[in-house]
Design a protein around this nucleic acid. Structure first.
Lengths: 347, 347
DNA sequence: GTTAGCACTCAAAAACAAAGAGTGCTAACA
DNA sequence: TGTTAGCACTCTTTGTTTTTGAGTGCTAAC
């Protein structure tokens, strides 16, 4: 958590006012605006001095001399962590859309993405639930014929997966045995997300001389285990990003949209989210903090929902850094609980 | 097929030259360019006269006075139908990507979309194969309780689908019987694509007084029958449209991209394509001809591939009207045959 | 029927001129 | 010492005018 070093009460108030104004208007905000907006009763000149300090401390930046200030990533971070007061759920629900029952989970999740997008005006994604806490129980490789190996993989809930692997030259029984040993001793009991590229590289190394053949085998195994094997990701409101000028120049739009199309990048986001479990299950990535490089000019808010049995899925909202965090977090929480209710009512 | 009314040899040559040049450059083409480009040995003044005629005939248009001419939709149509000579498959394959084998059809199709997009630089889509020739065999509605009807629908290959339908007031047995009769006599033996909105409207009308309740039932039935029930559509290269200035203004880009995200619109494209079977199975929609309203500024090229058993899928390319039709058709045909090979080798 | 020539049109680019928002700094003030 | 009024300065934004150049349509001559 970021501490507010060098920031006294007044500076905090001013920073807060700057960010809040900027979130609303999207325009750089100047000293005079703040002077009027806050009840500090300070002249614009004084505000200017404070702003100068805030800039030096890195919380705000100036697009160019003679423009107002806008929050930096650091500023946003402080805002999200400390300044923002989450709106008390307003009672007049301003008729936001709610989830409707659906017969199939697939439909429900698609709808969830849609509803969230239309309520927030940002781009959204929802992943199907995966058993991410699942442990690997057992791996067995066997030669089918001269050129094919079959890998049988058993996961925690006795979910069985298998996969044919082509090899150039047959493995000797001995090597196969060794390999089975190695895989089982190293990987057994590990959860899926613990098996990452680093570990795989190490395994390959240990596999020694046959690492070339063995490399293929491991790749295939890793591929099968990969969380994205069965996971679907539904997106909605991608084109909402065109509503925000800072994201809708060709370059950015292209990057963001292709991230949405190539689901692989979103998969990365999902795995990250699932692995870093926080108390509330909601995470905010601002700018460069994001796991998805293509979204480095955005803010990304993710949350997990649960199905019981350790089955977990991810919801995500992607928008400009100046997104309405309060509203987004509220919507997120509501969807989370709606989904919860749906799934638990069902059973 | 459009006939070339009022077009003599020379006009055709000039029109051909204009279109070809425009496809390459994307800029309005002027008389002087044509005068030099063709071997007609005519002065620009003469060309100007001919162009004036061509404009009057509707084959080309002027963005504004004192600009060159660009092809109209009618012009493109003529070009695609008559003028274009399909490049003989060049032997030096200019190393375009090929399909690789894949274990699952899903992967193969995703890859197909990707390869096509990267070979053509347009946006692409591939649908999973559907048994579109399938006939409806039987429909049975029964009351489950006061508020719910279950609809059991049997398709050709004895594929059974069912669906719960909520109604406000219970239907009498008599009405239910009538309705069952009506549905079966009208719909039986029809292929899925024959059941369109028009037919459904007519059915509702025939259902008479109860058409309100009955409307719901029919909607639900139609929904179940809808081809898109199980169909998946994979897209790729959506962001390629940013490469073409005429499509990459916010407005157009947004429309096109949301059509790609809301798969429903693409589904419409697929059903259209499957229903209008041409000899080669390749269709070109130019501008307003497209079944998808959002793509009215694009050209859309679709093709079908077969799996045997009447299972058919659709491939589509979406790009600017000035797309390289020759290349696109070539790529399309190649992919078609590659897919054919894949699927038939497999079995 | 073809073409040279020329006046005319219009979009796009370039150049220029305010206008306005906002800053930093200085000097005065409480 | 902190606050503020005042002012010169900086840059973007916006609008205006000018210039340029591609391309046309028309006329008159070949």
């Amino acid at each position: 958590m970021v501490s507010a070093q060098g920031l006294n009460e007044r500076k905090l108030t001013i920073l807060h006012a700057i960010i809040k104004t900027y979130l609303e208007t999207g325009e750089p905000v100047g000293s005079r605006t703040i002077s009027k907006y806050t009840d500090l009763n300070l002249s614009s000149a004084t505000i200017r001095n404070e702003m100068s300090d805030l800039e030096e401390l890195g919380y705000i930046v100036q697009p160019h001399t003679s423009a107002g200030r806008i929050p930096s990533d650091k500023g946003y971070r402080l805002y999200v962590d400390m300044l923002m007061e989450e709106k008390e759920q307003e009672l007049n629900e301003k008729q936001e859309q709610m989830l409707e029952k659906a017969d199939k989970m697939e439909k429900l999740l698609k709808q969830a993405a849609k509803v969230l997008a239309s309520n927030t005006n940002y781009a959204t994604m929802v992943s199907t639930p995966m058993n991410s806490a699942n442990k690997l129980k057992f791996i067995q490789l066997s030669m089918v014929d001269e050129e094919q190996i079959i890998a049988v993989i058993v996961l925690g809930g006795n979910v069985i997966k298998n996969r044919i692997i082509n090899v150039d030259e047959p493995l000797s029984n001995e090597n196969l045995l060794k390999l089975n040993m190695l895989l089982n001793t190293t990987l057994n009991g590990m959860s899926i997300e613990e098996i990452n590229l680093g570990l795989i590289a190490r395994l390959k190394e240990q596999a020694g001389i046959h690492s070339e053949v063995i490399g293929n085998v491991l790749d295939a195994v890793a591929d099968v285990i990969q969380i994205d094997e069965d996971m679907q990701i539904y997106t909605s409101g991608t084109t909402n990003i065109f509503k925000y000028p800072e994201l809708s120049d060709k370059q950015s739009a292209q990057e963001i949209i292709s991230a949405f199309e190539e689901k692989q990048q979103l998969t990365e986001l999902v795995t990250q989210t699932l692995s870093k479990e926080e108390n509330t299950g909601i995470q905010v990535y601002i700018g460069d903090e994001t796991p998805v490089q293509n979204m480095k000019d955005c803010s990304v808010v993710t949350a997990t929902y649960e199905l019981g049995d350790g089955m977990k899925g991810t919801i995500g909202i992607i928008g400009p850094k100046r997104m309405d965090y309060e509203h987004v977090l509220k919507s997120m929480k509501r969807l989370q609980s709606e989904l919860d209710q749906m799934f638990h009512k069902k059973e």
